[in-house]
Amino acid sequence: MKLKKQEEPEASVDMTPMIDCVFLLLIFFMVCATMSKVDQTPEVVLPIAPKAAIPEDLRGRGVVNIVPLGTPIGGGATSENTPFIIYGQLTDEPGLMKIIAERRATEPDLRIYMRVDKNAEFKIVKRAIRACANAGIFDIIFGTFQSASAGGGG
């Protein structure tokens, strides 16, 4: 007697290439998300400069955030004594210079990226520039937006 096998040919789709593809995309976007992660204090509203250039190389940047005096940040608020924000921490000139010195030890080509709020007073910016000069940094960049429209958050 001949035995008949009961297996039917399954009409299954091979999902392997799709999963490969999706994983690749997933990793790509995860890397993009972590690459663009800089010290962005959300309170800072950048000024608009249509002629500003979108940077290609974001490495070697030390970020300083500056908001108008009296803006609440975390637990406290910015004041004459502590007008600068670095990674959410309020600091003053000696603190800023200390952080710059530490960063410069590992990155000699350090540039300072100042994210200054459009309504911040120049006297605070002036103090930050002076602190940078005293710390030996002469290359300073202001963060701006190219246009006021589009882009959701930021």
Partner: peptide
């Protein structure tokens, strides 16, 4: 990733260099 608006640079150099 598309949420953040891209920031642009406007740079200057202090006369030291």
């Amino acid at each position: 990733t598309t949420f953040n608006k891209q920031e642009a640079d406007i740079s200057f150099a202090l006369p030291g260099t």
